[in-house]
């Protein structure tokens, strides 16, 4: 009974994580400039690992494998903000200007920043 529950929960977590990864990937392709794409990349770098590695850890149970998976997760969560920030910073220093305001909303004069 418990095993079934663990299987169900971890399976759901993995599939949700995969779905979020695909959504993030779509965002990386779809968004208009580097800075907005970084946000989309953020989905694939935070929630997707959280859910997928969480699901794998539930499958592995209390073992050394779980510890290693936890290390991978912690490492990803610690480093990806640094990489995102470094990319944004380098792009700004290189002279790329972020697209601001409702740039994609054509013919809607009411919302401009």
């Amino acid at each position: 009974m418990t095993e079934l529950l663990v299987n169900l929960l971890s399976g759901a977590m993995m599939l949700t994580g995969g779905a979020f990864a695909v959504i993030g990937g779509i965002g990386v392709v779809r968004f208009p400039d580097v800075f907005t794409r970084l946000h989309a990349a953020g989905i694939t770098d935070t929630l997707a690992p959280l859910l997928i590695i969480g699901g794998l850890m539930m499958q592995a149970g209390w073992s050394i494998l779980s510890f290693k998976l936890l290390l991978i997760l912690l490492f990803l969560l610690f480093t990806t903000p640094t990489a995102s920030h470094a990319t944004a910073r380098a792009a700004v220093v290189d002279g790329l200007q972020p697209l601001l305001g409702a740039a994609r909303r054509k013919g809607d004069g009411s919302s401009n920043t």
């Binding site: 779509i26 965002g27 779809r30 968004f31 946000h39 935070t46 972020p98 601001l100 740039a103």
Partner: peptide, 25 residues
């Protein structure tokens, strides 16, 4: 982690409907 989950859902909705995005500094 709770904040990350909440904002992930918001950004995921923005991906599915890019007209929602409104980047600001």
């Amino acid at each position: 982690v709770w904040q990350v989950i909440k904002s992930n859902i918001a950004v995921a909705r923005a991906v599915l409907d890019p007209r929602r995005i409104q980047p600001t500094l």
